[in-house]
Amino acid sequence: MKKGDLYWILAFVLFATFVIFPTTHEIFVNFTTNHPYIGGFFKFGILATMGELLAIRISTRDWKKPSGLIYRAIIWGLLGVVITLMFQVFAVGVKGALASGYLPGGDSAIAFAFLVSTIMNLFFAPIFMAFHRYTDTYIDLYYEGKKNITVDNVVSRIDWTGFVSFVILKTVPFFWIPAHTVTFMLPPEYRVLMAAFLSIALGAILAFAKKKK
C-alpha cells in the first residue's frame, strides 16, 4: 500500500463520517435540502474527482494528478448541478406519468425507481457522458500544448466506437440502470449523494476494463 492510498482512504472516510455522524448528518441534510445546487456541486466536485484519481491509480498502479485537475473538478461540480436538476425533473415527471396512467406500475416504489432510472439513463445519460468526454478531451489537448482548439480537434480525438460499445451499451444497462434504481428508492436528499458515490465505483470499473485491454 502506498502513502497516496492512505490519503485517499482517509479523505473518503472523513466525507462518509460527515454524512453518517448524527450531528453533522443533520447539518448535511439541512444544507442539501435548502441549497441543492451548491450541495450537488460539492458532492460531485469532490467524490467524482476522487473517482477519477482512483481510476488512474488502478490503471497505472500509481497516484498521478491528471492535467488540469482543478478544471476537471470544477466541471464535475457543474455537472453535479445539472444532475441535481435532472434527478428532480425525471422523478417528478415519472411520478406524474404513473399517476395519470401513462406508465405502468401504479404506486409501486420499485416500479417508480426502475422507470426513473431507465428513462433518465436512456435519454439523459448519453448526452451527459458525451459532453463530459468532450470536456475531458478538450482539457487533454490544451495541456498537450494544442493551440486554437476547435470542435473538430476534440471530436476527432474521441474514441466514439469505444464510447458507444462500452460506455453506452454496457455501463448504462448493466451498471447505471440497476444502480440508479437503488438510488431512486432512497429519500430524495440522498439521491445526488448516492450518484456521486457511484461515480467512484464507475471510475474503478472503467479503470479495470482499461487495464484488461
Rank of each mutant, 00 (worst) to 15 (best):
V82C: 09
T84E: 05
V192H: 03
L53W: 02
V172C: 09
Y71C: 06
A73I: 03
F44V: 05
V172L: 14
L206S: 07
G101D: 05
P126T: 13
H180T: 09
L202E: 06
A196I: 11
N30L: 08
L53Q: 03
S108G: 12
L206F: 12
V182S: 07
L69F: 08
E144N: 15
I46R: 04
V92T: 11
T33Q: 08
A195S: 11
F112E: 01
F28C: 05
T84H: 05
L69A: 12
A111K: 06
P36D: 05
F166Q: 04
V89H: 06
S100I: 10
T181C: 08
W160S: 14
F15P: 03
S100M: 07
F15W: 10
L103H: 06
N34Y: 03
A196V: 12
F112R: 03
V29F: 01
T183V: 15
I110F: 09
I83Y: 06
A201N: 06
N153H: 11
A48G: 01
F112M: 12
F184C: 05
D159K: 15
F18R: 10
T33K: 13
A201E: 00
I149R: 04
F197T: 07
T137E: 07
I56E: 01
W76A: 04
V94I: 13
G40F: 02
P173L: 15
I75N: 01
Y102E: 09
F18A: 12
F184A: 02
I110K: 14
F31K: 14
P173T: 15
W76E: 03
I20Y: 04
E26C: 08
V192Q: 01
D136V: 08
M50R: 00
D5K: 15
F124E: 02
F90W: 11
N34K: 15
I38P: 02
F175I: 14
A16C: 05
G101K: 13
H35S: 12
L6W: 11
L98F: 07
M50W: 00
A179N: 11
L122C: 08
W8F: 11
L198V: 12
P22Q: 05
W176D: 03
G145Y: 01
T60E: 13
P22D: 00
G162Q: 10
T183A: 12
D62M: 14
Y190M: 09
A99R: 12
A48F: 04
I200C: 05
H35P: 04
P104I: 15
G106R: 02
W160E: 10
A207C: 11
V182W: 06
L6Q: 11
M50E: 01
F197D: 00
A195H: 10
L193F: 01
G80E: 01
F12V: 15
M1T: 12
P36G: 07
K65D: 00
I38S: 09
T24P: 01
V94M: 02
M185A: 13
F175M: 08
